[in-house]
């Protein structure tokens, strides 16, 4: 474990807590992409199947995995529950959430079949989750760019997620030099993901630092 990795994991944790707090405190689901959240459930369930094999890496590792599975499921349940409580807001959310996720799912499956460490059930699902995570934020960014309105808490959520991805890169550089370890698939997909966020970061910078309106191209 190095500092970048710990800070990365903590910002990942923070992003999820920010999102849950947003939904709970404001009683609003406005600006949140249901599709992105549903993708995270698929990602964590397919990646953390190794919990079932009881080959524990560490208590920290297992607890974090359980947290990510549980919290992603909880967020989807919270969003689903708004269907009964706030039918209009729910309908608006679904209507605005138009990104075609089947391409992301299909593309990730193809990438997983082509690039994996071993042609086994667990390894293909692991690789699938890695590729899917690299693009899972796209429905959310698409929604944000279409609506043009800046829901500040949604933005803080995306920002914290982006920080998490970005911090994993110095973590990998550190691990390469200090431990001589390199996870090629995680690095390549992680770079793809960070590039997707970099567009958002630029806009975020412009908005927060320069105070202009948030509009993704």
């Amino acid at each position: 474990m190095n500092l970048f990795r710990i800070l990365g994991d903590l910002s990942h944790l923070a992003s999820i807590l920010i999102l849950i707090r947003t939904i709970k405190a404001t009683d609003s689901i406005d600006g949140i992409s249901f599709k992105t959240q549903a993708l995270y459930v698929i990602i964590f369930f397919t990646r953390y199947l190794d919990l079932l094999t009881f080959q524990h890496i560490s208590i920290y590792n297992s607890l974090m995995k359980l947290f990510f599975i549980g919290s992603s499921l909880y967020i989807v349940i919270l969003l689903q529950r708004s269907k009964a409580i706030q039918p209009i807001a729910y309908r608006e959310m679904i209507m605005a959430d138009t990104f075609k996720v089947q391409y992301l799912l299909g593309g990730s499956l193809i990438m997983a079949l082509l690039f994996n460490y071993k042609f086994s059930f667990f390894e293909i699902l692991w690789s699938f989750s890695i590729w899917l995570e690299s693009v899972a934020i796209l429905p959310q960014l698409f929604m944000l760019s279409k609506s043009g309105k800046s829901k500040s808490l949604t933005i803080h959520y995306i920002f914290a997620l982006g920080i998490y991805r970005t911090l994993y890169i110095p973590n990998w550089i550190w691990r390469y030099f200090v431990e001589g370890k390199v996870d090629k698939l995680a690095v390549i997909s992680g770079i793809v993901q960070t590039l997707i966020y970099s567009d958002f970061f630029y806009i975020y910078y412009k908005k927060v630092i320069k105070g202009s309106n948030l509009q993704l191209p």
Binding site: R5, D9, H12, R47, D50, T53, Q55, I57, S58, N61, M64, K65, F68, Y117, K118, S120, F122, E123, W126, Y168, N171, D183, A186
Partner: peptide
């Protein structure tokens, strides 16, 4: 083998 499943990152 075991090394394939050594995904220690989250």
């Amino acid at each position: 083998d075991e090394e394939d499943l050594d995904h220690d990152e989250l």
